[in-house]
């Protein structure tokens, strides 16, 4: 039931017109989505938008002098980091009706969670001797518009790191390595890590382009996916404590292995699959290829 009143005159909303934000992903430009799957801290957000401002009408409606400075500014707030910052600032001194191009980058390292991006028209500096009702303090907001993008949520992600196998004890020329450590009861997120060899260009590039893969990248990713899935199942089957009637806690390595196993083998028992694995390992490998739909399955 309540209304909020600013302590100064504000212009009509029709005096500012803003086009939607555009997000630049590599070469491509898309309208700012509600959420950005696959974002991580290493991805900076490059944003563009056009804003038309009728400076003359605004100054008049706010009882500001004709030459009063105005500025467009972009301020963001991230729920993930709890930080707030400014990414763009453009003064509109003395101009009438004009189109302004905002082009900015928000550092991935500073944000996370939900990112709100406020586009603001403000009085950029304190003004002396203006009308009592006019906005005169630096920072007075005359128009604002908020956009939001969800960068992080609660979805599962597979832990991956691109590293140089050179100085490691892993073979230099290998392309990837799935590291599995810990007991079946340890936390899955802490027990698995897919290491990708940065020296192997084909694979390293495929991983960096996974959001927008070329066909070659898709094939590489599909092959790695199938191999990782198989490695996980084989690892699980090699463990004595991976059995049908085991009861793994939530989010443990055991529960994860069991889920992958079920994706591959449906209702078949672990015991049965383990036996088959001993009898005809090559056939099992082929079955698993089919189960993950390697290279798009039926294509």
């Amino acid at each position: 039931m309540s209304r909020i009143a600013y302590p100064y005159l504000r212009p009509a909303s029709s005096t500012v017109d803003a086009q939607p934000w555009r997000l630049l992903l590599g070469e491509e430009e898309v309208e700012l989505p509600e959420s950005l799957d696959g974002w991580d801290y290493n991805l900076d957000l490059r944003l563009r938008r056009e804003v038309q401002v009728d400076g003359e009408a605004i100054r008049e409606q706010c009882r500001l002098p004709a030459g009063a400075p105005l500025a467009l500014s972009v301020v963001w707030y991230s729920t993930g980091s709890g930080l707030r910052g400014r990414s763009a600032f453009e003064r509109l001194d003395g101009r009438g009706y004009a189109t302004h191009h905002l082009d900015l980058t928000i550092a991935g390292a500073e944000v996370g969670g939900v990112l709100s991006i406020d586009t603001l028209l403000v009085v950029p500096e304190a003004l002396a001797e203006v009308d009592a009702l006019a906005p005169h303090r630096a920072g007075s907001m005359l128009w604002e518009h908020r956009s939001e993008i969800r960068l992080q949520g609660g979805a599962s992600q597979f832990p991956i790191a691109v590293v140089d196998f050179g100085p490691s004890t892993l073979p230099d020329t290998a392309a990837w390595h799935l590291e599995v450590s810990g007991s079946m009861d340890s936390a899955a997120m802490g027990s698995l890590l897919l290491l990708v060899n940065e020296r192997n260009k084909a694979v390293a590039e495929a991983f960096s382009r996974a959001g927008k893969p070329r066909q070659a990248d898709s094939l590489v990713l599909s092959a790695v996916y199938a191999d990782v899935a198989r490695t996980m199942v084989e690892h699980a089957l090699s463990r004595e404590d991976f059995v049908d009637d085991a009861n793994y806690g939530e989010e443990t390595l055991g529960a994860l292995m069991l889920d992958v196993f079920r994706q591959m083998f449906g209702a078949r028992t672990i015991k049965d699959v383990r036996l088959r694995m001993q009898d005809s390992p090559s056939l099992m490998a082929t079955e698993m290829q089919a189960a993950v739909g390697i290279f798009g399955g039926d294509s």
């Binding site: 500025a71 400014r86 500096e125 630096a138």
Partner: peptide, 12 residues
């Protein structure tokens, strides 16, 4: 109503 974040250091 004042967006202090929108300001440059001098005005802030």
């Amino acid at each position: 109503f004042l967006s202090l974040n929108a300001l440059d250091d001098h005005a802030l």
